[in-house]
Amino acid sequence: MPFVRIDLRKGKSPEYRKKLGEIVYDAMIELINVPKDDKFQVITEHDRADLNHADSYLGNHYSDDLVFIQITLNTGRPVELKKAFYTRIVEQYQAQLQGRPDDVVINLVEVAKENWSFGHGIAQYA
C-alpha cells in the first residue's frame, strides 16, 4: 500500500530513474514488511529552479543531484525499522548509482488503512 513519490533534477536517464525506484521498492519489501507487487511509484524530474532547497541542513550539504523521496504508507512501524529503512536506501543509492549520501531526503507520511482505494472506488483495507 505504500505510494512513493521521487522527485529529482532533470537529466537522469530512464535507467537511472528506474533503478532509483527499484532501490526504494526493494528496501520496502526487505525492511518494512511491504508485500511483493505492492508497487505504486511516481518519479518526476524537475528543472533545478523548481527544486527549492537550502544548500545545507543538519550537517548535510546538498548538490544538484538532491533526491526527494516521499512515501505514504500505513501507520504503525517502529522507529528502529524506519531508521534501518532509511539507511538501506542510502547505502544502495551509493552502491548502485554512485550517489552522495547527503543527497537523499526521505519523508514518510503515515495514514490509517481506510485512507486507501486501489480501484473500483473500494476501500479495500477498511
Results as ranks from 00 to 15, higher is better:
Glu15Leu: 07
Val24Ser: 09
Asn74Pro: 08
Ser56Thr: 11
Arg100Gln: 09
Lys82Asn: 15
Ala84Cys: 05
Leu73Glu: 06
Leu73Ala: 10
Gln94Thr: 12
Ala27Ser: 07
Ser13Gly: 00
Asp38Ile: 03
Asp102Val: 06
Phe68Trp: 11
Leu97Cys: 03
Gly76Val: 01
Asp50Thr: 06
Asn52Ile: 15
Leu73Asp: 09
Thr72Ser: 06
Ala84Arg: 15
Gln98Arg: 13
Lys19Arg: 15
Ile23Trp: 02
Thr87Gly: 06
Met1Gln: 12
Glu114Trp: 11
Ala112Gln: 14
Tyr86Ser: 14
Ile32Ser: 11
Leu73Thr: 10
Glu45Leu: 05
Asp37Ala: 10
Leu81Asp: 11
Gln94Val: 14
Ile43Ser: 06
Lys10Gln: 14
Lys18Gln: 15
Lys36Ser: 02
Glu80Phe: 02
Gly99Phe: 04
Ile71Thr: 11
Ala95Ile: 05
Asn107His: 03
Asn74Leu: 07
Ala49Val: 15
Arg48His: 04
Asp7Thr: 10
Pro78Gln: 08
Asp26Ser: 11
Gln98Ser: 11
Leu51Cys: 07
Ile69Gln: 06
Gly11Glu: 14
Thr87Glu: 14
Gln70Met: 05
Val42Asn: 12
Leu31Thr: 00
Ala123Cys: 08
Phe68Lys: 07
Val67Leu: 01
Gln98Trp: 06
Ala126Pro: 03
Lys39His: 14
Tyr62His: 04
Asn60Leu: 12
Met1Pro: 14
Ala123Lys: 13
Val4Pro: 07
Ile29Gly: 06
Tyr86Arg: 11
Ile69Ser: 09
Met1Asn: 13
Asn33Thr: 01
Val67Cys: 08
Ala84His: 09
His53Met: 13
Asp26Gly: 07
Gly11Val: 09
Asp64Lys: 13
Glu22Tyr: 00
Val67Arg: 02
Ser117Ala: 12
Ile69Val: 15
Gly11Ile: 10
Ala95Pro: 04
Gly59Gln: 07
Gln70Ala: 06
Tyr125Gly: 02
Leu97Glu: 01
Val79Cys: 01
Ala126Thr: 03
Asn107Val: 04
Asn115Lys: 13
Lys18Thr: 14
Tyr93Phe: 13
His53Cys: 15
Gly21Glu: 00
Glu15Tyr: 01
Phe85Gln: 10
Gly11Leu: 13
Ile89Phe: 04
Val24Ala: 10
Leu108Val: 11
Ala54Trp: 02
Thr44Ala: 12
Gly21Gln: 02
Val67Asp: 02
Val104Phe: 05
Glu15Asn: 08
Lys39Ala: 10
Leu8Arg: 04
Ser13Lys: 02
Asn52Leu: 07
Lys12Ser: 03
Ile106Gln: 15
Ala123Asn: 13
Thr75Ala: 15
Asp26Thr: 09
Gly99Tyr: 04
His120Arg: 12
Phe68Leu: 14
Arg17Phe: 00
Asp7Glu: 14
Thr72Asp: 05
Glu110Ala: 07
Ile69Leu: 05
Ile69Gly: 10
Gln70Tyr: 04
Phe40Leu: 05
Lys113Phe: 00
Lys36Pro: 00
Arg48Phe: 01
Leu97Tyr: 02
Phe118Thr: 00
Asp65Glu: 13
